[in-house]
Write a protein that binds this DNA or RNA. Sequence first.
DNA 1: AAGGCGGGGGC
DNA 2: GCCCCAGCCTT
Length: 356
Amino acid sequence: MRPMKQTSDISAVLIEWYGRHFRPLPWRETSDPYLIWLSEVILQQTRVAQGLDYFRRFASRFPDVRSLAAATEDEVLKLWQGLGYYSRARSLHAAARRVAERFDGVFPTGYDDVRSLPGVGDYTASAVCSIAYGQPCAVVDGNVYRVLSRLTDADVPTDTAAGKRYYAERARSLLDESRPGLHNQAVMEFGALQCVPANPDCECCPLRDRCLSLARGTVADRPPKREKKAAVPRYFNYLHVRCAGSTLLAKRTGRDIWRNLYEFPLIETPRAVDFGELQRTARWREWFDEAGDVRVSGMLPMPRHVLSHRVIHACFYRVDLPTWPAGLSSFLKVLSSEISRYPVSRLTELYLERGE
DNA sequence: AAGGCGGGGGC
DNA sequence: GCCCCAGCCTT
């Protein structure tokens, strides 16, 4: 039997604040662990405003874990299209299938079982178990890091093993074990709306008298920011190849961005190249040397596409062929009207939205 | 421990 | 531009 932990009155302040400021959100109106899990995966590294419509669409199309398990990965990725971090969608689908098989379609209730699902780490397992089941698990996410770092003026980086231990322990000591779901959501909402990263309005903060970093003037430096990595440029030359009302797609299967999404035939080059250089690449010759009358009608440069640590310089060439050459036989031939059925990256989506 | 993995919104 | 978001996984 564990000794009863003293509940901090900071938790009470945050919960009181939460009662007056919380945003009404659809996943706060259910106790279904499946829907709460779904919301937590969607919200990983994603703002509420960005994930809200995705949650609505997923909850509508896949109202339970069995329907999600019964879908194809392509359909799940298509519904996820545009949200980013696509491994979340692949893991979500794989986890649903595991629940269907190993747990007989019933979302597990034990922390370790939940934590064992693909795409579920310490944060998501704690969030689901506390919110859906009332289990005393303290969540630690980006909001919690910031709130804790400021309250205690902790100069501890969050992206180290020691830092994670430190904040996890602080979060545990702050947790109100009698209402862990409410407590966790209160801390996160507080971080999202009041204790914001930049220019927080500390004058009206309910914790202004107990915030050590406010007293010391270090709010802007908490938590300590990690050093930024330089964005590595990549050069993508896409070929929108058309022949007899069809076009070509390929599935990205490598360990790279946009894994399992579809795209036009791609020639990646180590630097920006013009059409003349592109034609001299081995790939172009492999694909088109035997192709007869190749008509390239234009090149559409795209704006720089910025990812977290990549900046993609992309352009799309439109290539019209009289017949399909053998060099392109490994691609999927897709009716032009059917392209929209395939999950694609935001970059390709933007190109397609430009139309003809 | 470090790096890969998206996309968008706020300043 | 830069920061960072209800993180997780691989190496």
